[in-house]
């Protein structure tokens, strides 16, 4: 049970930890303080408990695929907020966002929703797997190990980003966020395919011999760039869209922001 509990927890924690670490690192450059993290964690925990408790009812929706649909829409919602967040971040580039509470709200929404989704699964697993006495210790240890690895990777990531020069930190942070958010679109599309809300197709290719999703590296790539070994055409094209849409938004906002700055300068 240890290995499987490590994998389950690691997968969920890693996704949330990466999102958290990138946002915290970017927040450092916008000088908004760290209060919002506590809010995110608290809201995320409450959200996870509520979502986990109601998952059995949600699953019954839409002829038994409510879980997929709900998860997909949470993912797409996080994606949308992330795109807005990135646009705002680029628009105000170097300015401190201390007084902009709605900016904090964006970050809290993103992280707490991500935590809600990932946390619900962890809670379900915990209560299912520990119901049997003889699994208790190994499941618990597996969860500790999985969570520690996930959080450590997140922290090292954060450390790396924070120690980069300001401009590069913003660029790399945004690039990572774009990849993570594209991964969310791909996950959402996979869930919708699984629920038969998007047409099912034959997989385009199979790279599992090259990098299997079962391996630790595969898990990291899944969390970081939404890696899939056997994507279908719809999934791949949605991933591409998920990647290019924020790039387009950022380019658009950037040109606006530069123009705005120029006007401000000439004034």
């Amino acid at each position: 049970m240890l290995l499987s509990s490590v994998i389950i927890i690691l997968r969920e924690v890693l996704e949330a930890a990466l999102l958290f670490s990138i946002l915290i690192a970017l927040a450092k450059h916008s000088a908004v303080g760290n209060h919002w993290i506590l809010w995110s964690l608290a809201l995320g925990l409450v959200g996870a408990i509520i979502y986990g408790m109601n998952l059995s009812n949600i699953s019954e929706w839409f002829d038994g695929v409510g879980q997929e649909v709900a998860n997909a829409f949470i993912q797409l919602f996080i994606y949308a907020v992330l795109v807005i967040y990135m646009g705002v971040q680029v628009y105000f580039k170097d300015q401190a966002m201390t007084s902009k509470y709605w900016f904090l709200v964006l970050m809290i929404v993103i992280t707490s929703l991500a935590m809600t989704r990932e946390g619900a699964e962890i809670l379900l697993y915990f209560f299912s797997a520990t119901r049997r006495e003889n699994h208790y210790v190994s499941v618990l240890i597996g969860m500790i190990i999985g969570a520690s690895i996930g959080i450590s990777v997140g922290f090292l990531f954060y450390y790396l980003l924070v120690n980069l020069r300001s401009l590069w930190a913003l660029r790399i942070g945004l690039a990572l966020l774009i990849l993570v958010s594209a991964g969310m679109v791909s996950q959402a599309s996979l869930l919708l395919i699984q629920a038969d809300w998007l047409p099912a197709q034959m997989p385009l290719w199979d790279t599992s011999t090259f990098l299997s999703e079962k391996t630790a590296m595969g898990q990291l790539m899944y969390a970081l760039i939404g890696y899939e070994a056997t994507p279908t055409a719809i999934q791949a094209s949605l991933y591409l869209f998920g990647l290019l849409f924020p790039v387009g938004i950022i380019a658009l906002v950037n040109s606006k922001s530069i123009a705005y700055n120029k006007i401000a300068e000439t004034k």
Partner: peptide
């Protein structure tokens, strides 16, 4: 300390 600790944790647990 946290950096050292998280790298160590990572290595040890892996």
């Amino acid at each position: 300390t946290l950096v050292i600790l998280s790298s160590l944790t990572l290595m040890i647990f892996l």
